[in-house]
Simulated assay, not measured.
Amino acid sequence: MKNNLILSTLQSSFIFQNAAQESLRQLAEEFQFFTFEKNKNIDFTQTDKYFFIVSHGIIKMTKMDIESGRSITLFLYSAGDVFDVLPLFDQQEHDVEFSIVKNSCLLAIEMTKMREWIKKDPHINAAFFSYLAREIRKLEDFSESMVFYDAKTRLIKFLLKEINTNENKNNSLLAELTHASLAEIIGSIRSVVTTELNKLKKEGFLIKKEGKLILHDLERLHKNYNHLFHNR
């Protein structure tokens, strides 16, 4: 059963989906399977040694300033995403933390073996370039938001872009994130996020369903706040 899960995860990942089936079967034998509980951190020695693929769950990459105690979330990883790409290529330590936002299953392969596969398989090699470009664009977008938009706009932009907006489904990401986590993601502080979320509740854009917050009336949300993304 684990072998089937590993293979299906590889087939659904942007990095590996175009590799030959025989290569995927061989690659699947190199992976180990790990489960992590919510609110746990992944041991940094593991992220130096292994390259991970998310089978299911949500992981966040966080950078912390020890002196101030403030932190910022650089990436959220979900099914099919991979980490940590930087030490995979530059073989240097990466001073970040990876924590579990939602109970997660991860596949792990030794960094040295992953480097060998990148050299050996042209499909995997090419996919990494596209993946890196996509991640750089995310950071570019984040940097632009930090400079040009206020906290309220960044919060709404995140909610509209990252959250599953199908009201008939459980909005799992929003349900799992605390106000402090949202503050880390948009580069603000918890009290500001709490204030803005309360405003969205009063306006009817956030409602509780089965005890969890979900986005509501998205057409009106887009209409009311679309101007924020055109005026800087």
Rank of each mutant, 00 (worst) to 15 (best):
G69D: 02
N39R: 08
T165P: 00
N226V: 11
V96K: 12
Q21G: 03
L160N: 05
D84I: 14
A183M: 00
E22F: 05
E30I: 04
N198Y: 08
K49W: 07
I42S: 01
S130Y: 14
N170I: 12
D217C: 05
S13L: 02
S8C: 04
E67M: 07
L173I: 09
L139R: 12
E135D: 10
F129H: 14
V85P: 09
L139A: 10
D217Q: 13
L221D: 02
F36M: 08
R190D: 09
K152C: 03
E196A: 02
E167R: 04
H230L: 11
I124R: 08
L132K: 09
K161D: 08
D217W: 03
A183N: 01
K102W: 02
F75Y: 07
S8E: 12
P122D: 07
A127G: 11
N41H: 04
K199N: 12
H56Q: 06
F83A: 03
R190V: 01
W117G: 07
R232T: 13
Q21P: 08
I189C: 04
I118G: 10
R190S: 09
N231M: 12
S143K: 15
D65W: 05
C105G: 05
S78W: 01
H222Y: 10
T45I: 08
L86E: 12
E97T: 15
L160D: 01
A183L: 02
L88I: 15
I136G: 06
S68C: 01
E184K: 00
R115C: 10
Q11N: 14
E176Q: 06
A183Y: 03
I156P: 01
L213N: 10
E30G: 02
T195C: 09
T195Q: 13
V85K: 04
I6D: 05
S181N: 07
S78H: 06
E219Q: 10
N103A: 05
F205Q: 06
E97M: 15
M64R: 13
M114E: 15
H179D: 10
P87V: 11
H179R: 00
L177C: 02
K152V: 00
Y77G: 11
I163S: 03
Q32A: 09
Q17A: 07
L24V: 04
S55A: 11
H56L: 02
N103P: 05
D95G: 08
Q46I: 07
N3K: 12
S12T: 06
L139K: 11
E110Y: 13
W117M: 07
F158G: 00
S99T: 14
V101N: 05
E22Y: 06
